[in-house]
Amino acid sequence: MQDTQISLVQASFAKVVPIADTAAGLFYADLFETAPEVKPYFRGTDITEQGKKLMMTLGTVVNGLHNLDAIVPVAEQLAIRHVAYGVQAEDYAKVGASRLRTLNKGLGDAFPPEVEAAWTAAYTTLSGVMIAAAYPTETQTAD
């Protein structure tokens, strides 16, 4: 990722922080509407608490984008844990699309195309690392 992209992601996320609970609610509502097949992964989960965890994790990742070497191992471990919930490699694209729609809805005019492109780059980078860690056989055969 370029420094400019990292700055755009961090600046836009700073605008999300004050509305974190609302943003998390928007995200899960969008995800469950557009990808209902992922809802069973959250069975028995307090979605409000899950939203708080999501926003805390996202904050850690966003703040660590200048130091990917530090956040990549954490992201890899998170991805490996998600396999136990039934998460599939193709679910990452669904989550990424919901994240972009949520940011667009929550930030409105403060989410222009260059900010969307920066978020896409960040998510593509991290989801690629996570997929490779969680599904090493699939990524090896895809090469």
Score class of each variant (00 low, 15 high):
residue 71 I to R: 08
residue 46 D to L: 00
residue 47 I to A: 00
residue 67 N to C: 07
residue 81 R to I: 00
residue 82 H to V: 03
residue 54 L to H: 11
residue 79 A to E: 06
residue 68 L to A: 13
residue 62 V to R: 07
residue 71 I to S: 11
residue 80 I to N: 05
residue 55 M to V: 06
residue 50 Q to S: 03
residue 75 A to M: 13
residue 41 Y to I: 09
residue 76 E to K: 14
residue 67 N to D: 15
residue 64 G to C: 11
residue 80 I to S: 05
residue 76 E to A: 12
residue 68 L to M: 15
residue 48 T to S: 11
residue 47 I to G: 00
residue 61 V to L: 15
residue 47 I to N: 01
residue 69 D to V: 12
residue 83 V to A: 11
residue 66 H to T: 13
residue 81 R to E: 10
residue 56 M to C: 09
residue 81 R to D: 13
residue 55 M to Q: 09
residue 57 T to F: 14
residue 69 D to R: 06
residue 82 H to M: 06
residue 64 G to D: 12
residue 69 D to C: 04
residue 66 H to E: 14
residue 44 G to F: 02
residue 41 Y to C: 09
residue 47 I to T: 02
residue 78 L to G: 06
residue 80 I to H: 02
residue 58 L to H: 07
residue 76 E to D: 08
residue 76 E to V: 02
residue 79 A to D: 07
residue 41 Y to N: 11
residue 55 M to D: 04
residue 82 H to E: 04
residue 45 T to K: 03
residue 56 M to G: 15
residue 69 D to K: 11
residue 70 A to G: 08
residue 51 G to W: 01
residue 74 V to K: 13
residue 77 Q to G: 15
residue 67 N to S: 15
residue 52 K to Q: 09
residue 62 V to I: 14
residue 47 I to E: 01
residue 45 T to N: 05
residue 63 N to D: 15
residue 77 Q to A: 09
residue 42 F to A: 07
residue 79 A to H: 05
residue 74 V to P: 04
residue 40 P to T: 04
residue 43 R to G: 10
residue 49 E to K: 12
residue 72 V to P: 01
residue 70 A to L: 11
residue 71 I to M: 11
residue 62 V to P: 07
residue 70 A to W: 04
residue 70 A to H: 10
residue 41 Y to H: 11
residue 63 N to W: 05
residue 40 P to E: 03
residue 82 H to W: 02
residue 63 N to C: 08
residue 45 T to D: 02
residue 70 A to P: 02
residue 57 T to Q: 13
residue 40 P to F: 03
residue 79 A to S: 12
residue 45 T to Y: 05
residue 48 T to A: 14
residue 54 L to P: 09
residue 68 L to S: 10
residue 74 V to Y: 07
residue 69 D to G: 15
residue 52 K to F: 00
residue 83 V to M: 09
residue 53 K to S: 13
residue 49 E to W: 01
residue 49 E to G: 08
residue 56 M to S: 15
residue 68 L to R: 11
residue 80 I to D: 03
residue 63 N to Y: 07
residue 52 K to L: 01
